[in-house]
Each structure stands twice: as C-alpha cells, then as structure tokens.
Design a protein around this nucleic acid. Structure first.
Lengths: 203, 203
DNA sequence: GTCTATACAGCGATAGAC
DNA sequence: GTCTATCGCTGTATAGAC
C-alpha cells in the first residue's frame, strides 16, 4: 500500500469523510428523502458524481452515515453492574448521555430514516431490543420468558423520549435538564423491568 | 346553490374518496416521500393529473389524508370525567382504542410523515399537547405551571407506544393484548400527571 | 365539473472522457 | 480520481376535450 495517512494533497484525502459529515447533517436536518445528493455534494464542496463514486448509491450513503450511533459494549457494563437496583436510573442516564453527545446526530438520522424506510426497521429493532435490552434482561437475571415484552415496553418509552426530545423537539421536554428527565423516567423503566406482569401478557 | 347531494352520475361520484383511500394506504405503507402520485392514481384507477385537480399538490393530498385521526371532543370527556383517579388508565385505553380502530391508519400516516416533514411537527405537537393534554391537565385541575412538562412526558410515552406498536411493529408489544398494555402503561401516565416533580423541572 | 394529454425542471443514477 | 453528458422517472403545471 502506497497510501496511508499521508493525505491532504490537493487530491483531497478526506473527501470521503467530508461527504459523510455533510450527509449526516443534511439527513438529520431535512430527513433522508428530501435531502438531495446534489445538495450534499455542494455542502461538501465536491462534484455530485463523487458521492456515487464513493458510496455507490444514496441508500448506501445513508447506511454509512448511520454506522453505529454508539457501541453497546462500551455503555452496557456500567448499566448492568450494580444489579437490578437502580438499573432504570442508570439506563435512562446512559441513554440521555449518548443522545445529548456527539453520537446523537447519528441516532436522529437513524430514527427519522427508519420511519420512512421499512428496511431500517430491522436495524432499529436489533439495536434497541436484541443488542441492548435482551442482553440487559439476561444479565440482570430477569425471567427470560417475559423478557421480550419487558424489553419492548422499555423500548417504547426510550423511543418516545428520543422522538419527543430529539426529533420533534417538543418543549419543554426538549430543553429540560437531564437530571429532571432521569428523575421522572427512571421509575418507569424500573417498573417495566421488574414489576409483576398481568396474566394476559404475551411471551 | 344548484348542487347538493345529487351526485353519483356516471361521472364517478366518489373518485375523490377513492384517491384518498389509495393515498392513505400508500402513505402508511411506503411513507410520504417514496409514494408517487402516479402510483396512487394507478391504485385508484384514475388519471394522475386528476389527483392534482382534486387536491392541488402532493402536500395538500397528505393533509387531506390525515385530516384528523379522531375527534378529541368525542373522546376527551370520557377520559376527564371521573377526575384524577384512574385518568392514566382511561387515557391509555382510549389511546389504544383509537389506534387499533379504523382511524389508526391515519395516525400512522401522520407519524411517519411528521418525522420526514418538519411542517407536520407543529401538527403533531398541536394534536398531542395543546388539543388533548393541556386541556386534560387544565380540566383535571393540576398545577398549570408545570403542566406543559407533564404533558410532554405523557406524550413521549404515548408517542413511543405508537411508534413501537404501530409503526415499527416491535413484537411482542405489537401483538400484545390491549388490556395487558393498559395494565403496564396506565401507572406510568398516572405518575407523569400527578407525581411530585423534581426541583429542576422546567416550566 | 370531470377528465385526458402533454410539457417542464429537478431528481438519482450511469457511462465514459480526461 | 474527477468531471461532463445523459437517461428514465418524479412532482408540478397548463391547455383543452368531453
């Protein structure tokens, strides 16, 4: 390999990353469908055809923009250790930390796009349910049968929080102090994970 | 006025309604942006230009498709009467009743489209917060200052429920018995409306 | 009023010249 | 690697037939 980190010639070494950043911003701001490749190229100061050259299609550009909003393996252990007591609070706080952080923009892109593009529903499902919540339910030693129902209940509240606070930006929730949100939502999550379920619960 | 209810000549009396129904179905299934007017026209078995003749533009067709998922004046009194006690349960049950009913499809269209089209954010906000929850908060005699924060908390859980159950169709929540969902969510809503708020709560 | 035919600018995508 | 030219399709608009 003759290339490496020796870029930044006039051939533009990080054109790819420039395009990705412009795409992320546009997708988060305007949504996937109404964002045009020509607009992304203009913001990234490159030729529109370059976008296709690097990413192949608009859909693949979307996937590249999302990648993974954050690494579950990095956040999960801190939530799980300490056991069931207070897991609701730790989960909500970690969730808010990720979305309020730099990875949050990717999350907004993912959420907005998933709603418009059924392909990504599976991705969201994997992300919220399989990779995070089911692992947590298992590690916390909750009953495994009804774990999936509990997980989707938790997902519904966290999904709604993300929608209301970061996508729709409903005030005053959107501007509320992190800890105020934690105080109100933590008991909810805790209940969904540990409270006795009704007899007609699925699973 | 010479016109009236005397339609239904061979000129196709319900062409308009046929288009609306095809549009609702397509919007709910594929999302707003990737649904084409030509496709709607084909499903409704009419000429594409007719869609513009009746509705003016694709955006106006969307608004017509949504109209109002349901009439708050019809549902609200039953939720509010009886006072604070059990209002969470009545609210969740009414919410599920609407979405599981025939009006649910319009709700899915509204939600999916709102995420892609910032114009509709205001509509969703009006619908969830102003027209329903603020009225309810006022009628129930809760403190008015923090009412908006409580309302958005309730909205986040109901929004998330709609997303998880009707848009993303996360199992087993999507297929769960109505009453099982009510049993788990009602205490949450009740808490958001009546529980003491932390000091750093906005409003 | 109800409907058909047609034109137009802008989109994602592709082929191929440099 | 980078850019020009171009294709088929989209939403939109208008003129005019019945």
């Amino acid at each position: 390999m003759t290339n490496g980190r020796t870029g930044r010639r006039r051939g533009n070494p990080d054109t790819r990353e420039q395009i990705l950043e412009a795409a992320r911003h546009a997708f988060a701001e305007e949504g996937f469908e109404r964002t045009t490749i020509r607009r992304i190229a203009q913001d990234a100061e490159v030729d529109p055809a370059l976008v296709h050259h690097y990413f192949g299609s608009k859909d693949q550009l979307l996937l590249a923009s999302i990648d993974s909003p954050f690494d579950p393996g990095e956040v999960l252990p801190g939530i799980i250790e300490g056991g069931v007591d207070g897991v609701g609070e730790r989960l909500v706080r970690a969730f808010l930390g990720v979305w309020d952080g730099p990875g949050g923009k990717r999350g907004v892109v993912l959420l907005r796009s998933a709603v418009a593009q059924p392909l990504l529903v599976r991705l969201v499902r994997e992300f919220f349910v399989s990779r995070i919540l089911k692992t947590a339910v298992k590690e916390l030693g909750l009953d495994i049968d009804k774990g999936a129902f509990r997980a989707t209940l938790v997902a519904s509240q966290l999904l709604g929080l993300a929608m209301a606070r970061y996508v729709l930006k409903l005030e005053p929730l959107a501007g509320a102090d992190q800890e105020a949100v934690v105080a109100m939502l933590a008991p909810t999550i805790q209940r969904y994970l540990t409270e006795a379920l009704p007899e007609n619960a699925p699973g």
